[in-house]
Every structure is written in structure tokens, then in C-alpha cells.
Design a binder for these strands. Structure first.
Length: 498
RNA sequence: CGGGGAGUAGCGCAGCCUGGUAGCGCGCUUGGUUUGGGACCAAGAUGUCGCAGGUUCGAAUCCUGUCUCCCCGACCA
């Protein structure tokens, strides 16, 4: 890997910059199969932190984990009409269960599916698990006493997308999908909003990424949902990224899979449902929210390595003392549950190490040399910049914890500032197209819900309705749609999206 | 699937026009000197030139076919 390749300034080529950040930080590589991604330890480490944090939030809201199979009978998919329409074009299909050997004319050996081992019913690799899960819920749910069911699963799914981009859109990706079943509509609606709030608070607190919450327009809604709610983040090129969704499924899947329960009064009713998910796309979201022209910048809460300690010495005889001192700092930090690594690789100059860990996004670097050792301190540098500063070794764990919290907060603050500075309120379409072309950004506009107009705007400007923000739907009575001039039904947030 | 580009060492590329035994940079290995912001010297290792045919004494290079990947559009968490 070329380590001297400069990371392309995001101003000139955002897409290339993004790929460079990932490569230089050694997060992931494409696998030999189309757009599926290999997560290297550093990249997977970020996902593991995300996963652990989300898991604790899911459990705090009463959810439990389970696991459903990778393969789904083809016929299951077609039981919900909109659902099959939404996913049919991107399904990987399994048709055989055995290979047989082939020998080409030139004598080369190979293999091909054995016609004798053709499956009676093809299987699809799950693009999402609603169907298999609701098939099972049909067996599990008999009585109102069986409800609610609040299940989440961590899994990989496959959607054979035509165009892929690391983390943001890959043919196979890791995610969590929550699937809940409820006795009443209100309970399911509450669950939908509860999980949207879990995602919002997670994005803010853990990813340091401000998001706008809102409802999707009908054309952006999940296939099979009654309503889809979303968290939308703004990346550094001012495009939007859908970072998580929470769906109110109504009784669509209960009808499709005939899932009913007996009420206290003894009659049978259809079950109400939700589903909600976030994926490894969040890793991409974090990369694009905070990184700079030097490379990856990770919020401390999701950094697999939060602190790197680099010992510095001139002579061999200094080495042992410095490394011992550095190791003491490392173990103090580790005792306080700070994820820390000592980089004592020999034959590598400190400067080279600095650049490498900066490219990998480690939030805090501690340099420890003879001068520091003499003073009982370490020399600290934040990945987010600013002057280097001294930290006393005897309070290093406590002080580091607070420095990491500062970094976390400053990342959120600057991301929020950027989002606010690039969000505009307009009510004039001509002004919108001009501003969007010039500087991108989010546009909050009065809107009359209309799928045709929405498509026309997307065709003309490439911008789509990211959501109808939950916080902006008051006081619409007097307003008219910025596009059609008809009475407005919503405030809509338009933006170019990934 | 339509339009454009590219397949040569782990990565990035040159060589192809004008056929003649495979090159460069980075990385990697070994030894030595270095080490407070990307070290240096020396010695090494690494190739089915995407694949299959053809032309030729001889093909990375010319011809034909084919596969794959990338960019722009259609699809999308």
C-alpha cells in the first residue's frame, strides 16, 4: 500500500477523498465479489463499538436479540405486494445445492451447478427479514399474552445494487433489524417513534453526528410500510445521507402472513408491526461527517483505538526506561477502560507513526520521551487539531477521559454548526434551484405532497425530499407549495442525497 | 443494458505505436547507522503481462473472440 499517497482534498473530488480516507485508514477492501466489502480489523472495530452502544440502547428499551436464517423461500417474498416490488430487482437467488465437475475442451477442470441438484423452490438470500420473521411470528403469536414481541437481530443481508460505494451501499452489508409485533396500532406507532428517538440520540451522542428526524414521502417509503421515519445527516459535501429508518408497518405483514391474536374478549385481531434498522452505512456516515484532508477522524466513542502512546528515544539505553514509563501510562488508561495502544515499533521514526495514526483517525496521541519522563508527563495531540499540550502522568486516566469527552463534543458542535450553516428556508422554486446548484445544502420548503412533482424536481435538480421534519410541521395553514403554488401540506426538506 | 475508459509484482504505474528473454516508484525481507513530525546506506525476494485462439522463427506488444473492473445514466439503506 502506498503510504505517501496524499489524501485528495475533499473540495476537489469528494468521492475520491472518501475512498482515500478508507484506504489510508485501512478500514476495508472490496472483496472479489462485486460490491461486497471486506472489513479489516480497524473498520470492523468501529462497527463493533457502534453495535455495542446500540445494543445497550435496544436492551434499555425492552428489546432482545434473536437470529433468523439467511435463506428465505422465494414464495415468501411475494406475499406482501409492495414488499416484493421493492426488492425483486436486487435479490440474489439460490437455485442449486450441489456442483459437478466440468472439463473444458482444453482439458481445464471447473465446476458448474449440478442440474440433478436443482432446488424445487429457489431460495433468496435475505435482503431484509420481514417475511421469514413474520412467518415465524405467525406460529408464535396466539394470544394477547404473547404480545408485544420486541426482537432485534444483528445480521448480514444482500441487496444486489447496481452501483456500490464502500459502507454507503454495498451488495452485502451488516446491520441490525428490529421487528416488533403489537396488539394495538397506538403501541406500534409509539414503538416506531421510540426507535427513531433511539437512533437520533445515538447519532448525536455516539457518532457526534447531528441528524434531522422526519417522515418519508410516499415515494421514499420502505416497500411494505405504512409510514417510514428517518434520520438524515448532512455530509461534508452538503449532501444528505439517510442514516437510519424506523417503519410503521401497520397490519400489512400480519395480513400477508395471517398473523392474528385472540383478545381478552375472545375475538381475533390482526397484529400491528414495526421494523427499524441501521447498517454499516453508519461507519460511512461517521467517516464523511468528521474526516479531513489528512484522513480519518473518529469520534472517541466509536474509535477502536482512542489513544495511541508513542515512545520516543534517541539512544538504545533510553529505550527501556521510556517504554517502561509509557507502559505504565498505557496500563493506567486501560484500567479506566480507555482503548489504548502502545506503538513501540522499532526502526520507525516518530513522525511516520504520527502520520499513520492520524490517517487512522485515532482521537488522541500521547508522545512520551526522555524530557516528558523527567517531568512525569506526556505530550498530547488531539486529532482534531490545536496546540499540543502536556498531561501529567499521575492523573492521566482521569484527564484523558475528559479530553476524549471534549473531542467528542467538539466534533458534534462543528458538525452541527456546518449543518445549520448549510440549511436554508425558502419558498421560491427558482431561488431553490439556483442556490442548490451553487452550494448544495438542505432546503426547508413549504410543499404540497405530490409524487409527480417530487419526481420532476428530482429529474431537474437531482434533489429529493429527505423527509418531512418532525420539528417543522406547525403553522402551515397560510403557506403555499414552493413548486405548485397550491396550499401546502408539509414542510419538506430537500437535498441531494447519497 | 446504453455511452466512455482500463486490465503488466501487494499497491500505483511505464513499456505496446515501431514484436526480440519484464521495468520504475512505494511497500516487503536481511544487515547496519538512525529516531521530539513522513530516515538513510547496502544487499535481496516477488510476475500465468485478465483469459482463449490466431499471425510469426519469436507476442505484454499485431489480429480475433471473450471475461472482468472503473466512470456517466437507470436501481437503491
Amino acid at each position: 500500500m502506498a503510504t505517501d499517497a496524499p489524501i485528495t482534498p475533499r473540495a476537489t473530488d469528494y468521492s475520491q477523498w472518501y475512498l482515500d480516507v478508507i484506504r489510508e485508514a485501512q478500514l476495508a477492501d472490496y472483496s472479489p465479489v462485486k460490491g461486497s466489502l471486506v472489513l479489516r480489523p480497524h473498520g470492523f472495530g468501529i462497527w463493533e463499538e457502534i453495535k455495542a452502544d446500540l445494543d445497550s440502547r435496544f436492551k434499555a428499551t425492552g428489546h432482545v436479540n434473536a437470529y433468523f436464517p439467511l435463506f428465505i423461500p422465494l414464495s415468501f417474498l411475494s406475499k406482501e405486494a409492495e414488499h416484493v416490488e421493492g426488492f425483486a430487482k436486487e435479490c440474489a437467488v439460490v437455485t442449486h445445492h450441489r456442483l459437478r465437475e466440468t472439463i473444458s475442451e482444453s482439458g481445464k477442470k471447473g465446476v458448474e451447478p449440478d442440474p440433478a441438484a436443482k432446488l424445487e423452490e429457489p431460495l433468496i438470500v435475505r435482503p431484509t427479514s420481514e417475511t421469514i420473521i413474520w412467518h415465524m411470528y405467525g406460529k408464535w403469536i396466539q394470544s394477547h399474552r404473547d404480545l408485544p414481541i420486541l426482537i432485534n437481530q444483528w445480521a448480514n443481508v444482500v441487496r444486489w445494487e447496481l452501483k456500490t460505494r464502500p459502507f454507503l451501499r454495498t451488495a452485502e452489508f451488516l446491520w441490525q433489524e428490529g421487528h416488533t409485533a403489537h396488539a394495538t396500532e397506538q403501541e406500534a406507532l409509539d414503538e416506531t417513534m421510540t426507535m427513531l428517538e433511539v437512533y437520533r440520540s445515538f447519532a448525536h451522542e455516539t457518532l457526534a453526528m447531528p441528524v434531522t428526524t422526519g417522515k418519508k414521502s410516499s415515494s421514499e417509503r420502505f416497500a411494505g410500510a405504512v409510514d417510514t421515519f428517518t434520520i438524515e445527516a448532512m455530509m461534508q459535501n452538503n449532501w444528505a445521507l439517510q442514516a437510519g429508518t424506523s417503519h410503521f408497518l401497520g397490519q400489512n405483514f400480519a395480513k400477508a402472513f395471517d398473523v392474528t391474536f385472540q383478545t381478552e374478549k375472545g375475538d381475533r385481531k390482526l397484529v400491528w408491526a414495526t421494523s427499524w434498522g441501521v447498517s454499516t452505512r453508519l461507519v460511512g456516515a461517521a467517516i464523511m461527517s468528521h474526516s479531513d484532508d489528512t484522513g480519518l477522524v473518529l469520534p472517541p466513542k466509536i474509535a477502536p483505538i482512542q489513544v495511541v502512546v508513542i515512545p520516543i528515544y534517541r539512544k538504545a539505553h533510553e529505550r527501556d526506561a521510556v517504554v517502561e514509563f509509557a507502559n505504565k501510562i498505557v496500563s493506567d488508561l486501560r484500567d479506566s477502560n480507555i482503548r489504548v495502544t502502545l506503538d513501540d515499533r522499532p526502526k520507525m521514526k516518530p513522525g511516520a507513526k504520527y502520520y499513520e495514526w492520524e490517517r487512522k483517525g485515532v482521537p488522541l496521541r500521547l508522545e512520551v520521551g526522555p524530557r516528558d519522563m523527567a517531568k512525569g508527563s506526556a505530550f498530547a495531540a488531539k486529532r482534531t487539531g490545536g496546540d499540543k499540550f502536556s498531561m501529567m502522568a499521575d492523573s492521566i486516566a482521569k484527564d484523558t477521559t475528559s479530553v476524549l469527552a471534549d473531542i467528542q463534543q467538539s466534533l458534534f458542535d462543528s458538525a452541527l454548526k456546518r449543518q445549520l450553516e448549510n440549511t436554508y428556508s425558502l419558498d421560491n422554486y427558482a431561488e431553490f434551484t439556483q442556490s442548490l446548484a451553487e452550494k448544495g445544502g438542505f432546503y426547508l420548503v413549504p410543499w404540497r405532497d405530490n409524487a409527480e412533482n417530487e419526481a420532476a424536481i428530482k429529474a431537474e435538480t437531482k434533489a429529493s425530499i429527505r423527509c418531512y421534519p418532525n420539528a417543522s410541521q406547525e403553522g402551515l395553514e397560510e403557506r403555499v407549495c414552493f413548486y405548485s403554488g397550491e396550499p401546502a401540506t408539509h414542510m419538506a426538506l430537500f437535498a441531494r442525497a447519497f
